[in-house]
Design a protein around this nucleic acid. Structure first.
Length: 525
RNA sequence: GGGGGCGUAGCUCAGGGGAUAGAGCAGCAGCCUUCUAAGCUGACGGUCGCAGGUUCGAAUCCUGCCGCCCCCGCCA
């Protein structure tokens, strides 16, 4: 995909920089806060002062004199040596035209090196419904996958069900107890949904707990898939931990690390010497009683993923799983893989107004509850609009009672307003008119649209889909301001054509941005 | 004790080497005979946790300290 409109400006400045001896120094353009500082500004002359051993203002003056582009109307030197650019009407026209030409592809293809990337996300135990706490994983992980795909990577989305281990036995015991009208074990599952699931299975209460567990997890998996589909999270593959044992993959993985000399026996158990690869401590693979640990499953799972041909395996995990990073990377390395192929993204936990949530405690606030209350769009936006490194406080009451003030509606409203304008217009202009001289509000909107490709690239690079949400808000704001200041229908014909083209371009970019965070762009509200 | 994340406006949070630090919400003053007022305009609001360091320049990078959250199992 070609460079963004802003990249082309930077390239023009870059040629001037090279001409004054600063070859190879990247030119980064910023949008100055102060309009007096032009449309775009760069501090490249300040950075060149040392290597060129010259005064920044002198260098800036030489660069300014060397800049030549029909898209740059003026260049001036300011302050300690900043270069402030003003762009031409031709640039604004070209920027809008580019959006309309590329349509839904505008902003895509940012990946310098397209890869096969797997994003594994949500991945909970199939012993209870998806909670609001897990919802952040779903919203973040799905948006990240969309972002990777849009950037040009070949993405596989996977859910890993931990359907092996003691929690499954406990779930079976809890289900059977409820079916018999008894209380579940003290360390079992207490939630109300347990009785409901048990009643829906139609199993004989006398059946053994393994049968209950199997039927119960199958039922829960169905529910989880339905909830996630409702939340617009798509998965290509649903992976069962159980299958790693049934296929013998766990045994083969352990043989492999054993052959590599990374396994030893101690205290009657089999250990992985993961400390060799930077882990905090060695990990038990096979317990004294001969059963395998979760780590053994991880080991086999990593081998399975990477052997499927993914260059990178992304894990989306909550902050409480921080300790996983070292373990997973060590496991990959013990198997003989480059640990950099394991990309663990940790998101900070969602804190709710009335305390933490736990499946076993029974105080469940499910994702479905949240969706019933505020809808998919508001929920996805609320969960993805903050950086994943940032702990967020969710005030559910505020979200449910003040949903009209949720920023997501602000963005959607911009799209719906444009749709209303386009419905009233006779035919949509394919391009701005050559005579178009954008007014300030129009110019701001175009600059917002021009920024999109670079923003997508940065968001993908930093694994930060929240940047897209913030961008959607900024662009919506630029549109609402334009809308108040510039009449579209009924303006002079050339101006009307130009503004209709700008409206269409804005609608396109808003729709793309909202889609990247899993939010719909409505035609009317 | 060890490790990780965070500390920015009254609240929730962007920004992560560039010029006078931003947005939303809350609160104040205005704007609907005009393409959707779920909107717009203006004013108010700051010791970017504290102290050092790096340099032309630090909210941003480094070190130390303080505070909050999470993790440190032959659970998964």
């Amino acid at each position: 995909m070609s460079a963004s409109p802003v990249d082309e400006l930077a390239a023009a400045v870059g040629r001037a920089v090279a001409a004054v001896g600063g070859d190879g120094v990247p030119v980064r353009l910023d949008r100055p806060a102060d309009p007096e500082h032009g449309d775009y500004a760069t501090a490249v002359a300040l950075q060149l002062a040392k290597p060129l051993r010259a005064a920044p203002r002198d260098i800036a003056g030489r660069i300014a004199a060397a800049v030549a582009s029909e898209h740059i109307a003026s260049v001036e030197v300011a302050g300690p040596g900043f270069l402030n650019l003003r762009v031409s009407a031709a640039w604004y026209r070209a920027a809008v035209g580019r959006v309309l030409e590329q349509g839904p592809r505008y902003g895509s293809g940012a990946a310098a090196r397209p890869q096969r990337v797997q994003v594994e996300y949500v991945s909970g135990n199939p012993t209870g419904p998806v909670t609001v706490a897990t919802a952040r994983n779903a919203a973040y992980g799905d948006s990240l996958a969309r972002l990777f795909e849009f950037a040009g990577h070949d993405v596989g989305r996977e859910y890993y069900f931990n359907d092996a281990g003691r929690q499954i036995d406990l779930f079976g015991e809890s289900l059977r107890a409820r079916a018999r009208g008894e209380e579940p074990p003290a360390d079992g599952y207490q939630g109300e949904y347990v009785a409901e699931v048990a009643a829906g299975l139609g199993l004989d209460p006398g059946a053994d707990t393994a049968a209950w567990a199997r039927a119960g997890t199958d039922a829960m998996i169905g529910r989880i898939r339905a909830t996630l589909a409702r939340f617009r999270c798509s998965f290509d593959t649903w992976f069962l931990e159980r299958s790693l044992y049934e296929s013998g993959a766990v045994g083969r993985a352990i043989e492999r690390v054993t052959a590599g000399g990374h396994v030893y026996e101690a205290d009657g158990a089999v250990w992985l010497r993961s400390t060799t690869f930077g882990d905090d401590k060695d990990r038990v693979l096979e317990r004294t009683d001969g059963t395998f640990t979760y780590v053994a499953g991880d080991l086999a799972y990593i081998a399975d993923k990477l052997e499927r041909g993914f260059d990178t395996a992304v894990y989306v995990l909550g902050a409480d799983h921080h300790g996983y990073i070292g373990r997973l990377k060590a496991a990959a390395e013990a198997l003989g893989y480059d640990p950099d192929r394991i990309d663990v993204q940790i998101y900070q936990l969602v804190r709710l107004r009335d305390g933490k949530m736990s499946k076993r405690a029974g105080r469940i606030v499910t994702l479905d509850d949240l969706l019933d209350a505020i809808g998919v769009d508001a929920a996805r936006f609320a969960l993805v609009q903050r950086g994943h490194d940032q702990p967020i406080d969710l005030d559910l009451e505020l979200l449910t009672t003040q949903n009209s003030e949720n920023p997501v509606y602000y963005c959607q409203y911009a799209h719906a307003r444009i749709a209303a304008i386009l419905r009233r217009a006779d035919g949509a202009a394919a391009q701005p008119d050559p005579s178009w001289q954008p007014e300030p509000a129009e110019a701001e909107l175009v600059k917002a649209l021009a920024e999109f490709p670079d923003l997508v690239a940065e968001a993908a690079d930093r694994r930060g889909p929240h940047r897209i949400a913030g961008y959607a808000q900024e662009t919506a704001k630029a549109f609402h301001q334009f809308y108040k200041q510039c009449k579209v229908i009924g303006a002079e014909p050339a101006v009307e054509r130009s503004r209709l083209a700008l409206c269409r371009a804005t609608a396109q970019v808003m729709a793309t941005a909202l889609d990247l965070v899993g939010v719909e762009a409505p035609e009317s509200m």
